[in-house]
Simulated assay, not measured.
Amino acid sequence: MHLLLVRHGETPSNLDHLLDTAVPGPGLTPLGEAQAAALPEALAGEDIEALYVSTMRRTQLTAAPLAAARGLGTIVRDGVREVSAGDLEMLPGESPEGREYMRTVFAWAAGDTGQRIPGGESGEEALARYDAVIAEAAASGAGTVAVVSHGAAIRLWTAARAHNVDVAYAAARPLRNTGVIVLEGSPSDGWKVLSWDSAVVEPAGESGPTGEPVETAQ
């Protein structure tokens, strides 16, 4: 399966660098709306057969122009929502607590899935729910599937499941609003990242696109 993981458009909480992970969450800023409107052209070369979104408003609003352009319905699944910040909800991402959020997410990606965000979920729970939606999409028989999701959740799942992207790579590279990670594979055979936010991905541990660490929820 050809899998497109798309981060939602910009939200007010992105501007303020807040850990805003509760459902349904905010809508989009004017820039976020423009980013969403540009998605159909940006993905014009992709033969998308199924379009998944999370239970959060920002993914549904981001996907709406693409769904309309392709004549697709959106499939809403809670499993691809953002990693829950729990007790850290709405704290600044630059705070010590905000930094701990992302450190925990990447510890999960490295295999320490038993850790739990205070008042939130464990890595086992977060990955299991995301895996279930990807497995559903793969079982649908669609050749190309787009999933409009969230920055921390996308980077977690990709680092944990793609064989050619390691945790250091994912941790150092933010995914811009409406940025796309493109993968090929299946739940049974595994996943390979073809591109990360428009940059071709080299094998884990080798050089790749530059970027700064992101310490906030998306």
Rank of each mutant, 00 (worst) to 15 (best):
E49P: 13
A138C: 14
V6T: 08
V165S: 08
R70K: 14
G79Q: 10
T59N: 00
L19V: 02
P12E: 06
A132W: 03
D78Y: 07
P96H: 00
G25L: 06
H2Q: 15
Y52N: 01
G190P: 10
T158D: 08
A22V: 12
V105P: 00
V193Y: 01
S140R: 06
L66E: 04
I75A: 09
A159R: 06
W196T: 04
A37Q: 14
A199F: 13
G93K: 02
L51S: 06
M1T: 14
R7V: 02
A217E: 01
E89Y: 07
T29Y: 00
G71H: 07
E100L: 15
G111Q: 07
E184F: 00
M90A: 04
V53L: 05
E121A: 11
V76Y: 02
R77H: 07
L66V: 08
A64H: 08
N14L: 08
L4V: 13
V80C: 10
A132G: 11
A107D: 14
P26F: 00
V180R: 05
A142D: 11
Y52S: 01
P24R: 03
V133G: 06
Q60S: 08
S149C: 01
A110F: 11
G143C: 13
E46R: 13
A152L: 05
A199N: 13
A44V: 07
T158V: 15
P209E: 10
A68L: 13
E46H: 14
P118E: 06
Q115N: 14
L91K: 12
A152R: 01
Q218E: 02
G123R: 09
G211L: 08
R161C: 09
V6E: 06
R99D: 03
D20C: 03
L127H: 08
L91C: 04
A110L: 10
T11W: 03
I117F: 07
I154V: 12
P209D: 09
Y130P: 04
A139T: 12
A64N: 07
S13C: 11
R176S: 12
R99N: 04
I117Q: 04
L91F: 03
D189P: 02
P92N: 05
S54T: 06
I154R: 02
Y130S: 00
T113L: 09
A172I: 05
Y130W: 12
P174T: 09
V148D: 01
V23I: 15
I117D: 03
E124G: 12
A67E: 03
E136A: 15
S198Y: 06
V180H: 08
R116F: 04
E215S: 12
G120M: 02
E184V: 13
